[in-house]
Design a protein around this nucleic acid. Structure first.
Lengths: 247, 247
DNA sequence: ACAAAAGTGTTGACCATACACCCATGC
DNA sequence: GCATGGGTGTATGGTCAACACTTTTGT
């Protein structure tokens, strides 16, 4: 058959009109408030059109000479002061109809969103620009967001749960020394009550062998003092790809 | 503190120089030759600079009005005729130094690669443009590729293995009716000999309950005839998120 | 009859779950 | 003492790996 009819010219010189892109980075930033057992998401108020006055995920456009990841870290740094965090790329959203403000005149210019997912330590995450422009929302109460940001958020939440089950990202966000209770509470807050019993959680994690008991004890109000543990990254290596916890 | 010093203007009108992007799509396309027990990757010869004469992953630049996914399907359709396949987005590579041909004059124009991962049925995948421009390579023998494409390929292979373990993508690429031996051979070819014994593989899959025995038998040379099974997508629903197979 | 491929069954080790129970501290 | 939270143990059912075994075909 006439296969060649479908073949486009292979050169950049081709007459086929290519799209021009501005590339943005939008971040799904989670933190866990273990005091109040809440999973929080960072949202910002958009000052300008499109969607002026609506909440959205914090984002920015990528600058010259800046990598995607650098841009993602810059967004974070502009909104909160935090030094303990985990960040990774999530997904790239780029349908030509993402931006409802798109007019036929600007049809050739498109906006691509390379979304990122981050988990930060809540206690460290001091909001910058104290005004009403930036806020932590409990996940369940996040309002309608601009663009397709609710979809991005849903995607980020799925990733957060998967990462918690298979990766040691909790330790990027816990203090250097933590109790098993701290760790358990973090998991409960993110995964929900039903994921595991405390005893079994505890037994499983300790058997995996990458938690060092420092011997130090900490006492928080009533109750028996708890041992402080440290995450041992080297000892974790063999546990890669094995789930740390079950649902 | 002087938080505002770090805050960039929020407008596109900003003086901060944004990068302009052309966005490309590069596909990691796998197929499984169950006759010869080989996992194959599709590579194409680059006709033009940069990297003229080198192998690379098949890719294209995104056109006006075309979604990322559409572009990914177009690349596929240009290289092979196939109608049974699975495709999903993989990862977006966009460091400013990806393209070694980048000159200071073109510093403001960057190329972003939104990589995709595909699994196609080998028997259906007729190569278009029969010349030497397109080839299936066994994974282990893939040569040095252009740009960062070897890295993308490694990423794609990891995803393929994960998807096989947790998702029913094998059935997108098997015939409507297949034997458990067919299924097993596909898994062995991708995951390696050591992942499971045939009996256990069989027992586990059947217990999960989404494989319908059609009662029909098929005979291939010597040996007892095998039952033909059909994948029941509805019955699979409850098995989401549960692994189908172990390593 | 024999080889080859499909399909079944059994065993022991391990693991997840659901509990019950002991320990150490503040009040 | 007793409430509170930390920590330990155990019985049960389930699952996985390994491997032996039976069944049904082609030659």
């Amino acid at each position: 058959m006439s296969a060649n009819l479908h073949r486009p010219p292979a050169h950049p010189l081709s007459p086929v009109p290519l799209a021009d892109f501005k590339v943005g980075v939008d971040n799904v930033i989670f933190s866990v408030d273990t005091q109040q057992n809440r999973l929080l998401v960072l949202v910002v108020m958009r000052p300008d059109d499109p969607f002026a006055g609506h909440w959205s995920l914090p984002g920015t456009l990528v600058r010259q000479g800046e990598s995607l990841e650098d841009a993602a870290y810059r967004v974070l740094a502009e909104k909160i002061r935090v030094n303990t965090l985990y960040l990774e790329q999530l997904y790239t959203f780029g349908s030509p109809d993402r931006d409802p403000g798109q007019s036929p005149q600007t049809f050739h210019l498109r906006y691509l969103s390379v979304s990122h997912f981050a988990l930060v330590r809540f206690e460290d995450a001091e909001l910058i620009a104290g005004g009403s422009g930036t806020a932590w929302y409990p996940l369940a109460q996040v309002p309608q967001l601009a663009f397709d940001h609710n979809e991005i958020l849903a995607y980020g939440y799925r990733r957060l749960r998967n990462k918690l089950e298979y990766s040691p990202i909790a330790f990027d966000v816990l203090p250097e020394l933590f109790t098993l209770g701290d760790l358990y509470q973090l998991y409960v807050t993110v995964l929900g009550e039903g994921f595991s019993d405390y005893s079994n959680f505890r037994a499983r994690l300790l058997k995996l062998g990458f938690l060092q008991d420092t011997g130090q004890k900490t006492s928080r109000g009533a109750g028996r003092p708890a041992s402080l543990y440290r995450f041992d990254a080297a000892a974790f290596e063999p546990c890669k790809d094995k789930p740390m916890v079950f649902i």
